[in-house]
Design a binder for these strands. Sequence first.
DNA 1: TTTAGCACTCATTGGCATCGAGTGCTAACA
DNA 2: TGTTAGCACTCGATGCCAATGAGTGCTAAA
Lengths: 340, 340
Amino acid sequence: MFFNERKTRILEAIINDYIATAEPIGSRTIAKKYDLGISSATIRNEMSDLEEMGYIVQPHTSAGRVPSDKGYRLYVDKLMPRRELTPEETAYLHSIIAGNISHVENLMRETAKAISVLTNYTTIASEPASNLTSIKHIQLLPMDESNIAIIIVTERNAIKNHMLPLDDVPDYETLTKLSFVLNDLLESNKLSDITKIEIEGLYKGSNILQKILDYIKQIMAQEDGVRVYTSGVKNILEYPEFSDIEKAKGIFKTFEEQEMLITLLGNNNENVQVVIGSENTLEQMKGCSIIKANYTYGKRDLGSIGIIGPTRMDYSQVFGVLNGIVKNINAVLYSITKET
Amino acid sequence: MFFNERKTRILEAIINDYIATAEPIGSRTIAKKYDLGISSATIRNEMSDLEEMGYIVQPHTSAGRVPSDKGYRLYVDKLMPRRELTPEETAYLHSIIAGNISHVENLMRETAKAISVLTNYTTIASEPASNLTSIKHIQLLPMDESNIAIIIVTERNAIKNHMLPLDDVPDYETLTKLSFVLNDLLESNKLSDITKIEIEGLYKGSNILQKILDYIKQIMAQEDGVRVYTSGVKNILEYPEFSDIEKAKGIFKTFEEQEMLITLLGNNNENVQVVIGSENTLEQMKGCSIIKANYTYGKRDLGSIGIIGPTRMDYSQVFGVLNGIVKNINAVLYSITKET
DNA sequence: TTTAGCACTCATTGGCATCGAGTGCTAACA
DNA sequence: TGTTAGCACTCGATGCCAATGAGTGCTAAA
């Protein structure tokens, strides 16, 4: 039993049909709908082989066949047409990116939203791991009579802001001077190495700097959390595989837990990556597939984006969209930067 | 036909039972479960009256009764027990607030999450309308070789950050000087009044300031959008009233649209406010109730919080939780500020 | 090797009887 | 005059059964 051209055609037919209809597909249907020049009986024999080889399965004796995860894997790796973005899709994404270039958070959020609209699946997007040990810049600002703001720019150009309550808030000029001191410290040392003694020497008599440094260290310790956004969560309910409320609940629960999403998005390499059904490590996601990629602008890490749907998802379309974005974003951002 | 004590008791029994079970409740059940000292036949008569008065309805002839929106309204306004927070709840909320005091966005997000956990309903929370026309402070920071960051602090102490691509990025010291100029302008004028001529005079030879001002104006024009967070969306699926996928879809769709959520949260006054079922203006929300309130810290507007559930929600509990938060947050925040 | 034919499987559908929770009404009772 | 027991009636829910039909595997002929 070997994998001939005819088997490939039949497997393709089954997968395409199943992606479109979510119904098990039988030999007669294939014979009628796809002009393969063979009878349903022959197709039956081939399907029997395909099942034995593990590419398709039968939900029950008297039903048609459904692709297995192994079948999808073959499809994704070998059979699936590699789509390019249509001009409309490109234009749409371009406009989204252009409208949000000034704000990375919005850019990620809106891109995710756009992908959900284009694909009708759920999109999750993460900020880059902020890793606050690599602080590039600190700025202090007065807020009100009892609070200052601490703005932190990381090496990866993420901007974080925090509030620190102080009994006695210095004015803007003083805070600016303090910011200079902090930034000087940053350039000469890793912030985590700075000892209390050094600070006393630098700015003696004041314990404000000390307080601020303690606070920043505290923030650094706490926050290596990455924020994850979801978009198009409602689309899940469009697919019959989740019409069972219990299954839907499992998915929704996962979508509300940051750590889960980070796990889902994790471990990306350069290219677009496809995780199919049972290949997922998370138990409740074994009925889903994820297509994900890192998202960069030049050397700058913008985060990761993943598109989640039922295993029966339109891999070709989604792969095309995500691949298009990853490949084109640099060009798009570059051209916009030059226009202005 | 008048509204006697007995009718009140029966209505209470129906509402309590229905909140707990989501099943229509009949006269015999009331007679058995609640010791009102009257027979089911008498209860039947009273129920017939209550129905005529519009406080309860009958889904179909041979079913028990279910509270109407009017019934819930009476319950919320007059009958419902006013719960205080339990010590455990207070402690839990206290810990959430304490852990996120430095960052308003996180504070709102985590408080919303905590409420969802406590109540098992969905919580939505909005930032205060930022209204960028009231800028209190502007700070420019260098980011990389082709971008600067513009940090804006509004009168209400919200912090916004945006990126501006520039061909030629000034260094930190120059940007600090520019920030001083901008803040001087802010103090003397409304930013929107500043004309090009004035700027030329202030900082002649450079068009960077011009670019920045244009950009800020552009941001001001765009962004009066308020961000809204949702939490506990999955809880919706716990309630049988949304086991119909189509209904659930409608709700989920609403939760993904910022404008809808803003509408839902809008028009709050000082106190905790309850909107019941058909009182909602949004068509798809007429099967839900919302309990909402503004959320302030001293004079500072932190945003709004709303809790959404089926009309058959536990008003007493939710009202208690939200009321507790609104009343206590100042005390909690104050005590924490003093501790540090 | 392919295909026509046939017996067999089994989820789905619709019809039907049954069940039971609940009602409204009436008549008797306190 | 208000309360209650009793009874006929309604109607959604449940369970059962037969019919349906899409699909299969196997066999034998082309």
